[in-house]
C-alpha cells in the first residue's frame, strides 16, 4: 500500500507543471542554460519517469530518500529533524482533546438536553468548524499579544540550557532534569496544541456523548442502578468504560488526520514540523522532499490503522476470541 501511495504521489508530482530547478534559481540573477542542465543532471531530473521512480524505490529500501533540491541536505535528516516536533505537538493536542472532550461528553450525556448540553453542542460545532489558522491567530492575539501569558510562536526560548537530543523537547527536558526548560517547552506548546486540538476535542465530546447515551440505556446499567450503586459509579465504572471503545478507535484513526492537518497551525506558530516542511517542498517542487514527507504520512496512517484494528481485540474480548 505504501508503495502504491509513493507511486501515485510520484506520478502526480511528475504530472504537475513546474520545474524545481527554475523555482530554486528564483527570479533573479544570470544563469546559463548549461547550469540549469547541470543541476537537473545532478539531481537525476533529466531521467525518464520510470527510471526516476525506480531509483527512488531502490534507494528508499536502503533508507536513503535522496537529497533535497532546495535545502541540499539528505531528506532523511530533514525529516528526522522535523518529525519529533510534529509528533510532540500532535500527541499533546490529542491529550488536551481527551482531557477536555471526555469529561465534557460525559456531562453532556448525563445532563441531556440541559443548558450545559446545548452549550457543549454549540462549542463543539464551533470547534469543528473553526479553521485552524483563524483560531490560531485569535489565540495568539488574545493570550500572547494582549495577555502576554504565552509566547507568540516557536518551540523553545534561548537560554533554557536545554540541549535537544531526542528532538522531543518535553522528553529532553525531563531526561536532563531541567524544570525551567520543561516549563518553557510547555508554554510554547499550549497555544498551537489548543489550535490543533479544537476539532478533535469537539469530535471526542460528541462521540462520548452519543456513545454514553447508548450504553446508559443498556440493561446492565439498569441492573447496576437496581443494585443500588451510586450514580457516579454507574456512569464512570460501568457505562463510560464500554462507551469509550468507539472513542479510542476513532482517536487512533484521527491521530493520523491530526498529524497531516496541522500544516497550517505549524505555519501560524512557526512550529518546525513536517507539515511546514512538506508545504514548502510542494511549493518549490522539491520532489525528493515531498516524496519523503508523503512516505512518512503513509507509514503513519498504515501504522495507526493497524493499531486501531489491534485495539478492537484488546478492548473487546469478544472480538479477540472470534466469538459470535
Amino acid at each position: 500500500m505504501v508503495l502504491g501511495v509513493t507511486f501515485v504521489v510520484f506520478l502526480l508530482l511528475w504530472l504537475t507543471p513546474g520545474d524545481p530547478v527554475e523555482i530554486f534559481l528564483g527570479q533573479t540573477g544570470p544563469i546559463t542554460a548549461e547550469e540549469i542542465a547541470r543541476i537537473r543532471r545532478e539531481f537525476g531530473l533529466d531521467q525518464p519517469f520510470l527510471v526516476q521512480y525506480g531509483r527512488f524505490v531502490a534507494r528508499a529500501l536502503r533508507g536513503d530518500l535522496g537529497t533535497s533540491i532546495i535545502h541540499r541536505r539528505p531528506v532523511v535528516s530533514l525529516l528526522a529533524q522535523t518529525i519529533p516536533a510534529t509528533v510532540e505537538l500532535t500527541l499533546f493536542a490529542a491529550l488536551i482533546a481527551l482531557l477536555v472532550g471526555v469529561p465534557a461528553g460525559v456531562i453532556a450525556a448525563v445532563r441531556r438536553r440541559s443548558l450545559l448540553d446545548m452549550a457543549g453542542t454549540v462549542i463543539a460545532l464551533a470547534g469543528v468548524s473553526l479553521p485552524g489558522f483563524w483560531l490560531g491567530l485569535i489565540l495568539v492575539i488574545a493570550f500572547a499579544v494582549n495577555l502576554k501569558v504565552f509566547p507568540v510562536a516557536g518551540r523553545l526560548s534561548f537560554g533554557t540550557g536545554l540541549v535537544p537530543q531526542t528532538g522531543f523537547l518535553l522528553l529532553d527536558a525531563l531526561l536532563q532534569r531541567k524544570l525551567s526548560a520543561l516549563v518553557d517547552v510547555l508554554r510554547h506548546l499550549v497555544l498551537p496544541a489548543w489550535a490543533t486540538s479544537a476539532g478533535m476535542m469537539a469530535m471526542t465530546m460528541r462521540l462520548v456523548r452519543s456513545s454514553l447515551l447508548e450504553t446508559l440505556n443498556q440493561e446492565y446499567v439498569h441492573t447496576a442502578r437496581a443494585k443500588g450503586l451510586a450514580e457516579h459509579r454507574v456512569i464512570l465504572a460501568h457505562a463510560l468504560r464500554n462507551g469509550l471503545l468507539p472513542v479510542i478507535t476513532a482517536l487512533a484513526l484521527n491521530l493520523g488526520a491530526l498529524l497531516s492537518g496541522n500544516m497550517v497551525v505549524e505555519t501560524v506558530f512557526g512550529w518546525p514540523g513536517v507539515g511546514r516542511l512538506v508545504v514548502q517542498a510542494i511549493q518549490t517542487r522539491d520532489y525528493p522532499l515531498v516524496q519523503g514527507g508523503v512516505l512518512f504520512y503513509a507509514l503513519t496512517f498504515v501504522a495507526l490503522n493497524l493499531l486501531a484494528d489491534l485495539s478492537y481485540g484488546f478492548l473487546d474480548p469478544r472480538i479477540r476470541h472470534g466469538r459470535e
Binding site: L137, I141, A144, V145, V152, G154, V268, G270
Partner: peptide, 22 residues
C-alpha cells in the same frame, strides 16, 4: 550581546510577536 534570527513564516505572527515585544 546576542543576536537571534527567529523563523516566523506567517506575517500576522511576525506582527504579533513584534507587538508582544518578543
Amino acid at each position: 550581546e546576542r543576536v537571534i534570527f527567529r523563523v516566523l513564516p506567517e506575517t500576522s505572527t511576525r506582527v504579533a510577536a513584534l507587538k508582544a515585544g518578543e
